[in-house]
Computed example of a mutant assay.
Amino acid sequence: MFSQTETLRFFTALQLHTADWSGKLLLGLGLDETGRTRALASLAAGAASLFLEADAKQLREANHQGCLTFAVTTLDEALRALKNEIRQGRGITVGLAGDPAQWLREMVERGFLPYAVLASEKPAEEETAWLQTLQQWGSLPLPIATLQLDSLPLRITEDTAATLQERRARDCELRNHLLRELPHPLQKRWFDTAPTLFPRSLSRAYWIAR
Rank of each mutant, 00 (worst) to 15 (best):
F10H: 07
A39M: 01
K57D: 14
I86V: 14
L52I: 08
P141Q: 07
P195F: 10
K188M: 14
A62I: 02
D192T: 14
I156G: 00
L52N: 07
S22T: 15
P143N: 04
I208F: 02
S42D: 06
P195H: 07
Q58G: 03
N176V: 06
L25M: 11
W190P: 10
K83S: 11
F11E: 02
A56M: 04
R204S: 14
G46A: 03
R36K: 05
W207D: 04
L113R: 12
V94W: 12
E61R: 15
D192S: 14
L140A: 13
E106D: 14
R80C: 11
E121Q: 13
L79A: 03
S201W: 06
R210F: 11
R170T: 09
S3P: 01
S201L: 09
V72R: 08
T93I: 10
S151W: 12
S3Y: 06
G91Y: 08
Q4S: 08
Q65K: 13
Y115V: 00
E121V: 03
V117E: 03
L40A: 01
F11M: 05
D32K: 00
E53L: 00
L147V: 11
R170M: 14
G23H: 11
A13Q: 06
E127M: 11
Q65D: 09
S42A: 15
D20F: 02
P153A: 12
K83C: 00
T160S: 10
A78G: 00
F10V: 09
H64S: 06
R80G: 05
E109Y: 02
T128D: 07
A47H: 03
W103S: 09
A44Q: 01
G28S: 05
L29G: 00
A116W: 01
R38N: 00
E158V: 13
A56G: 03
T196I: 05
A129L: 09
G28K: 02
T74I: 05
R168A: 15
G89C: 10
N84I: 14
R110S: 10
T7M: 04
F70Y: 15
A81T: 01
R180E: 15
L154H: 10
G28I: 02
L27K: 02
Q15T: 12
L31A: 01
R167Y: 03
Q148L: 13
H17F: 11
L147N: 14
L142E: 03
Q136E: 13
S42G: 13
E158T: 15
T74C: 07
